[in-house]
Simulated scan of single mutants.
Amino acid sequence: MNGQPGVSVAVTDRGFSYGDGLFETLRFDAGRPLLLERHLQRLQHGLERLLIPADGLLDLLRDELAMLCRPHPGGLLKILVTRGEGGRGYWGKVDRGPTRVVQRFASPDYPRQWFEQGVELFPCQTRLGLNPRLAGIKHLNRLEQILARSEWQDQYPEGVVCDLEGYVVEGTMSNLFMVKNGALYTPKLDRCGVAGVVRAVIIDSANKAGIDCHETRIRQDQLAQADALFMTNTGFGVLPVKRLGEQNYPSHPYTAMAREWLEEARRCEC
Rank of each mutant, 00 (worst) to 15 (best):
N2A: 10
P5C: 05
P5V: 06
G6F: 13
V9C: 12
V9K: 09
V11R: 08
G15S: 09
F16W: 13
L22E: 05
L22C: 08
F23Y: 15
F23L: 02
E24D: 12
T25E: 07
D29E: 14
D29N: 11
L36N: 01
E37N: 14
R38P: 01
H39N: 07
L40H: 02
L40K: 01
Q41P: 06
R42Q: 12
Q44H: 13
L47I: 05
E48T: 13
E48A: 14
I52S: 01
A54E: 12
D55T: 13
G56C: 01
L57R: 00
D59C: 09
D63L: 13
E64R: 12
E64Y: 10
E64H: 14
M67E: 15
R70I: 05
H72K: 10
G74K: 06
G75P: 07
K78Y: 12
T82D: 02
E85V: 15
E85Y: 04
G92S: 13
R96E: 15
R100G: 06
V102R: 08
P111T: 06
R112W: 03
W114E: 03
W114M: 06
F115P: 07
E116D: 14
G118L: 01
E120N: 01
T126A: 12
L128C: 08
L128F: 12
G129H: 04
L130T: 09
N131W: 11
P132H: 06
L134N: 11
G136N: 09
I137C: 00
I137R: 00
K138D: 06
L140Y: 07
L140W: 09
L143H: 06
Q145I: 05
L147V: 12
E151D: 04
E151I: 01
Q153M: 09
D154V: 11
Q155L: 13
E158I: 07
V161E: 11
L164V: 15
E165A: 14
G166F: 06
Y167G: 04
V169K: 03
S174T: 00
S174K: 00
F177K: 00
F177C: 01
V179D: 04
N181I: 06
N181E: 15
N181A: 15
A183D: 08
L184C: 03
Y185A: 10
Y185S: 08
Y185F: 15
D190F: 02
D190E: 10
R191I: 04
R191K: 14
G193N: 02
V194N: 05
A195N: 13
G196Q: 05
G196M: 03
R199E: 03
R199H: 07
I202D: 02
I202R: 00
I203Q: 05
I203M: 08
D204C: 00
K208P: 04
G210Y: 09
C213P: 07
E215L: 13
T216C: 12
T216S: 07
R219V: 06
A224T: 13
Q225R: 11
Q225L: 13
A226N: 07
A228Y: 08
T234R: 04
G235D: 09
P240A: 01
P240G: 04
G245V: 07
E246L: 10
Q247R: 14
Q247Y: 10
Q247P: 03
N248K: 12
P250A: 11
P250H: 03
P253W: 08
A256R: 11
M257Q: 15
A258V: 02
A258Y: 04
R259H: 12
E260N: 12
E260H: 13
W261N: 02
L262S: 03
E263T: 12
E269I: 06
C270G: 12
